[in-house]
Design a protein around this nucleic acid. Sequence first.
DNA 1: ATTGCTGAAGGG
Length: 370
Amino acid sequence: MAGTGRESSADENADFGDLSDSEFLDFSELGDIEDLGSQSSSSSGNPRKEVDPEGPWKRKREADALTPMERFHLRCLWVSDLSTQCWCEQQMVYGKELPDFQSTEKAAVLGAGASIHLARELELHDLVNIHTSTKEDIWAVKLLNVLSMVPILQSGGTIREFPVFGEVEGVFLVGVIDELHYTSKGELELAELKTRKRPMMPLEAQKEKDRFQVSLYKCIFDAMVRGQVTPASLVHHMKLSPELLLGPQVQSHAQQGGFTVKSFGELLELTFLSLTLSDLPVIDALKIEYSHQETDTVLGTEMVVFEEKQVRDKLQHHLGYWTGLREPHGVDVKEAWKCQMCDYAAICEWRQNGGMRTLTQEEHAKKMTK
DNA sequence: ATTGCTGAAGGG
């Protein structure tokens, strides 16, 4: 089911190249959006955005008028972006602006984590590549993954890479839950695996970011099973066309799963019914497991207490940047240590403009008035 | 379309 590979990234999956597109796997993802892939990867380090046919003035003015959601052409936000934002908002912004900037060391650690996650996913299901040619097809594959996993969950099984999506605090969020299973007490538990380069538990700042991430997953998942994520909401936010016919590979994959659908809207309605009529519980427990990449040793486990008010307040604060209510902020001076391992430290405006100094001045001023 | 455009997470 939950597919990952695009055809164009087959080299990354070379280790698993012998896996069969078996019947197990009910559905999987994705297609060959080759033009997209080559667009983003061909600009190796050299931004084409410096070309400025309109001249700098106009462009600058336009950029100022746009919210970041508009400027980055976003219809939704990713949970992973919000959790990166929790680490350092300014760094997250640089990541969006200069995506090819990151160091190879960092990429290697991320890659190691990604391949461990892929191996675990493959323990539970195979992946199948499905050709997609429209955004409706891409969403259809996601919906088919949901449709294939709901019955497993309903019968007490374990699932990995469950797609979640829905409006929270006015913005459409999209993410993928690592694992859902039931505990011995019969509680539905979300399990998030975090692999680490060094064999030690993370600092508090890292844990806080991870807690925020899994808490967001719970918000979205719960909204989905409660029927609060409606077909109309998805269609509206993602600007999809329900009447559009699904591509042949998507239709045939749906058929293999027992769903006869022709249009995107039919599949969407079916998924909504499955989510809301299967009597799935909301998530009862949130668990994060930290493990050492090289030795696969568990370093420790954190149970997260879900505090809805705090999570929603924090989300609202983060969204303030995205919706243009406020400028991006870098880290506070207390957390300047984060800059030591940041790929953007050398070009960071927050640091250059003394954003941290400004903060301490503000704090100082506060003190004086007391 | 004076526009179009998006795999999420990956770890510190």
